[in-house]
Simulated assay, not measured.
Amino acid sequence: MDATERLQAASKFLLQSPPGEINDVLNDVRNIISDDDALQAGILPALREYNLAQFTTADVPGHQHQCIVSEAARVEGSEESEEPRDRFWDPRSRTSFRFDHLALEASEPEPIEPDEESEPFRLALENSSLTYISAHFHDGVTSVFSTPGNAERFVVQVVANKYNPSNFWSGRWRSEYVLNLADRTLEGKILVNVHYYEQGNVQLSTSHTVSLELPQTITASNAAASANKILALIETEEARYQTSLNAAYQTMGDKMFKALRRALPLTRAKLDWDRVLGYKLGQEITANKGGFGSS
């Protein structure tokens, strides 16, 4: 395998990294490449893709909250480059920053002004989203973005991470909703990733799509009330999906996994474990007697 093939393999490994474990995977692939400079340059596109797709969170410079780094957060006109840093923005603080995809750090903050026409409704959505995640997610992060050139299109993103390496598991919940007031639609997706790796390697990766028509009571002119109604729709959908996941896992435990186990051995008769133990003790006693007689 030549250097290019090794870099391609390393990039694939990184893109499949479980939640919170990309640094562990990166350290492992360093042994494959054995050239840190080549590794950094070769895997940068994969790291960028992974961070944006996984809704990586960043501490906003100069502020006491985190925001989501995603494609929706990219500053208009900021193009991907060979440098590991792209510019994104946090609408909540009206701050843009450079994000280092290798170090996962934000720097070089600059003020940025939102679109005046869409900002009132975006702000109402943001306030409702913050209330929602504080009620339903531990350490959840949300970002709400307007769309340049379209004052009636908004993107609501939510991410929540739970890492528990001492108990060998990690998990991530991501959800994204595209709200279009002109078309009166709410299109979204929910993605869940869980990794359990105590004496094994079990991963769950599942997704759910949402497609709703907005009720007539949701209007741009009534921003606060409409934003609350939109988040109520999101809450209903996410609760329904969570309930379905719980039911599926209950069914797995009660039926599917039990069906995988053989009810009886090939003899179609249950083992008498007391007799088996008796046989074992008898064999040990016989063996010991033989040993004593030969001495």
Score class of each variant (00 low, 15 high):
E235W: 03
A220R: 06
N246Q: 14
T236F: 05
T236A: 12
N246C: 10
A182F: 13
T243I: 01
L191M: 03
S211C: 02
H208C: 11
V210L: 08
I230D: 04
V202I: 08
V210Q: 10
R184M: 01
T206C: 12
E235H: 09
E213L: 05
E213S: 13
K189E: 05
S221L: 03
L231H: 11
Q250H: 11
L186A: 05
S226G: 00
Q250N: 02
Y196D: 02
A223N: 01
N246L: 14
L214S: 02
K189V: 07
Y249S: 12
Y241A: 08
M252C: 07
L191G: 00
Q199A: 14
L233R: 01
E237C: 06
L191K: 08
V192F: 14
Q203V: 09
N201Q: 14
L212I: 00
L191F: 09
E237I: 02
M252N: 08
L231T: 10
N246H: 11
V194T: 00
I218P: 04
A224V: 13
Q199F: 14
N228P: 02
T219V: 07
I218R: 02
N201Y: 14
G200Y: 11
L214G: 03
V194E: 00
L186E: 06
T209I: 11
L191T: 11
A224H: 08
A220H: 10
L231P: 05
S211H: 13
L181V: 09
P215V: 00
S244W: 10
P215E: 08
A182T: 14
E198A: 14
I234F: 02
M252I: 07
I234Q: 08
L245W: 12
A182V: 08
M252Y: 10
I234L: 03
E238G: 13
V210I: 09
I190S: 05
S205E: 14
R184Q: 12
N201V: 07
H195V: 07
A225L: 01
L204Q: 07
N228R: 15
A232D: 15
K229W: 12
L186D: 05
S226D: 06
V202T: 13
T243K: 00
